[in-house]
Simulated assay, not measured.
Amino acid sequence: MPSSEPTAGTNLPEQLVRLTRRMHRAQKRHLAPLDIAFTPAQSRLLRIVAHYRGTPPRMADLAERLEVVPRAVTTLVDGLEAHGAVRRVPDPANRRVVRIELTDTGRT
């Protein structure tokens, strides 16, 4: 006799979606007192830049870490830059390379 309960394998995708939504809501609650309205992708980019070792990361480095195309990183950086959380800085060794560093606001 078939069970009316979904099996763990068929329910897993739904559980992951619910978990992701809960995490996003918790993140919004956590950032609300700071009056920050970053998207989850922007928050992830901030965390990557904050924990990057050595010189600030290049846009290409961020795209690789986020597993997205470089154009998507440009959009994320544009939003964060508009909030004053990051800034673009030229690479002293290669003028065609742009690096992304946190501002004091971004560190907060």
Rank of each mutant, 00 (worst) to 15 (best):
E14N: 06
A85L: 11
E14H: 11
R44F: 07
I36V: 15
D78E: 10
N11H: 14
T10K: 11
A60M: 07
N94H: 11
K28T: 09
V17Q: 14
K28H: 11
Q27S: 14
K28N: 10
H83G: 11
I100A: 01
R25A: 15
M59Y: 04
G84H: 03
R25Q: 14
A8C: 11
A93Q: 13
F38V: 14
H51N: 14
G79R: 03
A63E: 02
A50G: 07
S3Y: 10
A8R: 14
N94D: 15
L45Y: 01
G84Y: 02
A72C: 04
T20W: 04
T10N: 11
L19F: 07
M23Y: 09
A72H: 05
Q27K: 11
R95C: 05
T20Q: 12
P33Q: 07
E5D: 13
A85D: 05
V17M: 09
T103I: 05
P2V: 10
H83K: 12
P70H: 04
R29H: 12
K28S: 13
R29Y: 12
L46H: 05
P2D: 12
G84K: 03
A72D: 06
P57E: 00
M59N: 07
P70Y: 03
Q27M: 15
P57W: 00
L46I: 14
T74L: 09
I100N: 00
R71G: 06
Q27Y: 10
R58N: 06
T39C: 07
T105D: 08
S43F: 15
P13E: 05
R44N: 12
A82G: 08
D104W: 05
Q27E: 15
N11C: 10
G106I: 02
R21H: 08
A26D: 13
R88E: 04
V97L: 13
P56K: 01
T108W: 13
A8Q: 14
L80H: 01
M1S: 13
P90S: 09
H83V: 05
L66M: 11
A72K: 05
D61H: 06
D91W: 04
L46D: 03
T39V: 06
G84I: 01
M59E: 06
Y52F: 15
L62Q: 01
R18W: 10
L102V: 00
L12Q: 14
Q27D: 12
D61K: 02
R53Q: 14
T75A: 12
A63T: 03
V68C: 08
V98G: 01
Y52W: 15
G54V: 03
L31I: 06
T20Y: 06
A82V: 07
P70R: 07
V73D: 00
P40I: 07
A26N: 12
S43G: 15
F38H: 08
R71E: 12
E81G: 02
A60L: 08
A60P: 00
L76E: 01
A60K: 09
E5R: 14
E101A: 03
S4E: 15
T55Q: 09
R47I: 10
T103E: 02
R87T: 03
E67W: 03
Q42S: 08
A37Y: 09
R18T: 14
G9F: 15
L76S: 01
L31Y: 11
P92H: 05
M1T: 08
E14F: 10
P57M: 01
Q42A: 07
P2W: 08
D78I: 02
L66H: 02
R96D: 06
Q15C: 08
L46K: 07
S43N: 15
R71N: 10
R65A: 13
M23F: 11
Q27I: 07
H83L: 15
